[in-house]
Design a protein around this nucleic acid. Structure first.
Lengths: 350, 350
DNA sequence: TGAGTCGGCTAAACCGGTTTAGAGACAAGC
DNA sequence: GCTTGTCTCTAAACCGGTTTAGCCGACTCA
């Protein structure tokens, strides 16, 4: 039995050269004659040699891995289709380049800082992807302090130049959604928003408010949630209970929108006849429920792909700037329809 | 500016001892006097030293990381709430022990082998968690060949002793589901199964068939799917189109069950009046849709927790055997009801 | 012809830990 | 008094790569 994997010294011996030259040849650097190069590569191939990341990391101070820290309650991640798609996009970049993804799900924001510190102290990763950016996000200065490179999904409000951002504009799609509802005759359009601390949730809300304002409607009702289906249900119940019940609700994610449809139906309302529903994410399930969900489609996979690619370029020393992806798009399906006439608006019991 | 992080040599110098002794003290091994020990720990604390995993890995041949390779189409992962919950359970074990999770999403089973080989060749991880076990799974021998330790979710059919398994029995819950439907008067109960290659899907199907048989019903119809909501919708349409339409359908996951409810409604059927629906997973969304989904709850988070804990024990050299978790449980909600009488069974158009 | 340049290569240091061989001090046993 | 054993500790090798300093021979140029 050959005890352990071949090392670079074995390759050197087989090719009759020094370790150093093997290293040069394998990282194709100048200063190696063509004959030696082919001989070395042949020897490496023959021995089935592949470099040990550990040794490489130690001597070259590179981890060949990137980190992703998700600070969300597991339930929210499970409800949300964003991360799985996003991660699969990330992998499509990493795998071919021999990089690994180190994933941390911390559930609690208080553990978040410790996680980043550990990643940096142990030098597990060369850089991280920042998601779920918050207002005045403390991670921006934290990362600077611990010297960890990063890119962010969306632009931070702290120091926009500190961290390159990969952005995806959802404002046009939200405007389209509101216009779509207004054109259907809706005047009382409510919003079930995500946590206000989260920049993307706040931005969606702002876009929504602006869209409503520019349609000359009265200031709409907005209910904040934590993004879970459970909280989406609670928010919906609250909205439908109001004296001036909205005839359309725009949600910050599909999970809440789907829960919202459920709540409306339990309240004896028909969707979309009595209330129109708009989601956000374009999750697969939304396409198959009845009524099929009108929603805003964002390319989570593409976002992951570009984010990973950008981070790798940053880590390798390139100068990278912000990158803007194609904006989100409204997908109209069956959960939105003409606004009910006033006489239809009163609650009916099933 | 202090250029780089302190190393063990800095700690040694500060404490006035040798590197070796510092190493001993920090891994609390015998042979260090109490005074030296406290002096060393104080020095390390003072300097803010933390060990470099890279160096540690290189010299001790341990990666302090475990791998998870998910070979599923990204769409299926996004539809399925299992992995996010599972991973959050895994993290709850890893983080406190200074271990990292290296995640690979490969999408294509052909890339899977290469991914495991890379993980092993680069020695990125000390062990892996095997999920989505397949019939005659080639990974069992692959892992042996490349010398990667592993535990599996569910027991392999290849060489049960090769890889310790963490199992969760869903048979009782599936039997309960069928009994529940039978007690409601259903006699034509169909199953929308997952891919037959997947052991857990096949096992669920087998449990279902056995449960139906033991209720003295005729052999039921089973439609195989790829686990996506889209395929669940297709399967449902196929079932509802049959001359002898089933009055109840048991699905292999919640995403398909929810899609199935959508399809039934589009076909003008009411759930649960015309057809009863049972899911599998107990996803959050299922609780809030209307009708709330009757489903089988498995503790994905706990599964992740136990799997990670078992793998770490295995990796650290412990002798570990199979572990059986608490079985899945049926959760009865509103998507199941008394079977329709024969006159009610014919299709009505909306 | 001699100095300078360049390409190809080797030896050795280095990254930051762990681990082994063995030194020195001291107590116990004969 | 001498051997033996135990405890604490140091020096140095080692893990498997990368990188630097410098050697050697051939070639160029004045």
């Amino acid at each position: 039995m050959q005890a352990s994997r071949p090392t670079i010294a074995d390759v050197a011996r087989a090719a009759g050269v020094s370790k150093g030259l093997v290293s040069f040849a394998l990282n194709d650097r100048p200063g190696v004659s063509p004959e030696s190069r082919t001989r070395i590569l042949a020897a490496a191939e023959e021995l089935g040699w592949s470099p040990s990341v550990r040794a490489r990391s130690l001597s070259s101070d590179v981890s060949f891995a990137v980190g992703l820290v998700i600070a969300r309650d597991p339930e929210i991640i499970a409800d949300d289709s964003f991360f799985p798609s996003f991660i699969s996009g990330v992998e499509r970049v990493l795998a071919p380049r021999g990089q690994s993804l180190v994933l941390s799900v911390v559930g609690d924001e208080r553990l978040e800082e410790a996680t980043y510190r550990r990643l940096a102290a142990e030098r597990r990763v060369d850089g991280v992807i920042l998601t779920d950016l918050r207002a005045a996000d403390s991670r921006v200065s934290l990362l600077r302090e611990i010297g960890l490179r990063a890119i962010s999904l969306g632009r931070t409000d702290v120091d926009a130049s500190a961290i390159p951002a990969v952005t995806l504009d959802d404002a046009p799609a939200i405007h389209d959604a509101v216009r779509h509802l207004v054109s259907l005759g809706h005047t009382r359009i409510a919003h079930v928003a995500g946590p206000d601390r989260l920049l993307h949730a706040a931005r969606r809300k702002a876009s929504f408010l602006q869209a409503v304002a520019s349609s000359n409607l009265a200031a709409p009702v907005v209910v904040e949630t934590d993004f879970t289906a459970a909280d989406g249900a609670r928010a919906t119940a609250e909205l439908l209970d109001r004296a001036e019940r909205p005839t359309a609700i725009v949600y910050a994610n599909d999970a809440m929108a789907i829960a919202g449809i459920g709540v409306a139906r339990r309240a004896g309302l028909d969707v979309p006849r009595d209330v129109s529903i708009v989601g956000f994410d374009d999750s697969a399930i939304g396409r198959y429920i009845e009524p099929a969900l009108t929603t805003v489609a964002t390319d989570a996979r593409g976002w992951g792909f570009t984010a990973a690619d950008t981070l790798l370029r940053l880590v390798s020393g390139d100068e990278v700037g912000d990158i803007e992806l194609a904006p989100a798009e409204l997908v109209v399906r069956d959960s939105t329809a003409t606004a009910p006439t006033e006489t239809n608006t009163d609650r009916r019991q099933r």
